[in-house]
């Protein structure tokens, strides 16, 4: 097991290196001169050259990349072009917001998804199952941002139960997290249902029924326990997708997390921020994937030796 984890971590290193190179080249390949973005388009030629030298853009690429990597390893992601503030500080400040949002969304998604999935599977082909399935395929076709705007309209504007946007309290968190969890919940419903149906066909379930155990015991102690293992691992993968969805949902509810930071920076060509966030997001996904793989391997020893 330990060697498997080690192999996987070593395997991540080249991917991470490639991503740092891409992120580094970002500033150089994209249209727009960073010096002009930083100091304004009107500066004269002489100042321009001075600034260029001072910011280190005249050095060879390899030297610049080395410097970039050294800074990054020390946790320094540079200075934002737009606000002149330290990117790392800003990321640390905003990370908590996105983290809380995604975790709560995941809880919603798991609670709603698994409950509906179990109901659907145990009452297969009933009206509840059909409604559930129709709802999930519809849910998967609804854009998150529109769903957000609609529940904002209903629960914040019409009923006035929640604030329309902003942050600070748990109440502010409700609508954004429900919006974000909704799509993932639909995926989890489908996954739980098919996983349950598969387990319900197993021999040991038939045996349990044959020996006269009540349906409740069969479902709760024999089926659920086995059916939910893949669901939980799959949910780990969905976590990565939640972070992607957070970018959109944060924009709808003006939630001050990393997603809105990314979009603001893209619209303002604030490259150091984009660079840092791309790296951060990539790193997150690799770690999540790693954890998911490890949990798979832990649950199913066959995988470890492939």
């Amino acid at each position: 097991m330990f060697s498997y984890i080690l192999r996987r971590i070593v395997g991540m290193v080249p991917i991470l290196l490639v991503i740092t190179v891409i992120a580094f080249l970002f500033v150089h390949l994209t249209p727009g001169d960073p010096i002009r973005i930083m100091y304004g388009a009107e500066i004269d030629q002489e100042t321009y050259q001075q600034m260029r030298a001072r910011e280190g853009f005249d050095d060879p690429m390899v030297v610049q990349y080395g410097r970039y990597m050294m800074n990054m390893l020390q946790g320094d992601f540079g200075i934002s072009y737009r606000t002149r503030s330290n990117v790392s500080d800003e990321i640390i400040r905003r990370f908590g917001y996105t983290f809380v949002l995604t975790v709560l969304s995941m809880i919603w998604a798991l609670v709603i998804g698994i409950t509906v999935g179990i109901i659907s599977a145990t009452r297969r082909n009933s009206w509840m199952d059909r409604t559930g399935m129709v709802t999930t395929i519809t849910a998967l076709s609804i854009p998150e941002f529109w769903f957000g705007l609609m529940i904002m309209q209903i629960f914040a504007v019409q009923l006035g139960w929640f604030p329309t946007s902003g942050s600070g309290t748990w109440i502010h968190l409700m609508l954004p997290s429900l919006t974000l969890g909704f799509g993932v919940a639909a995926t989890i419903v489908r996954f739980t249902r098919s996983s349950m149906l598969e387990v319900l066909r197993e021999d040991y379930v038939r045996t349990a029924r044959a020996k006269g155990q009540s349906e409740r015991v069969v479902v709760w102690s024999h089926v659920l326990r086995n059916a939910l293992i893949p669901v939980v691992t799959m949910s780990g993968l969905q976590f990565g997708f939640l972070i992607g969805g957070a970018v959109v949902v944060e924009q709808v509810f003006a939630w001050p997390g990393l997603g809105s930071y990314l979009i603001d920076s893209i619209l303002n060509r604030d490259y150091p921020v984009i660079q840092a966030l791309i790296l951060l997001f990539s790193f997150q996904f690799l770690v999540i994937n790693l954890l998911v793989d490890i949990s798979y391997a832990w649950l199913n020893p066959q995988i470890r030796y492939h």
Binding site: F26, I243, I266, F285
Partner: peptide, 21 residues
């Protein structure tokens, strides 16, 4: 495998960040 590890929307946003709106 690397591309699939990323959620679609973020990958698309990264491409837009490169190419512009």
């Amino acid at each position: 495998d690397i591309l699939l590890a990323f959620p679609g929307i973020l990958l698309a946003i990264a491409v837009i960040a490169f190419l512009g709106a």
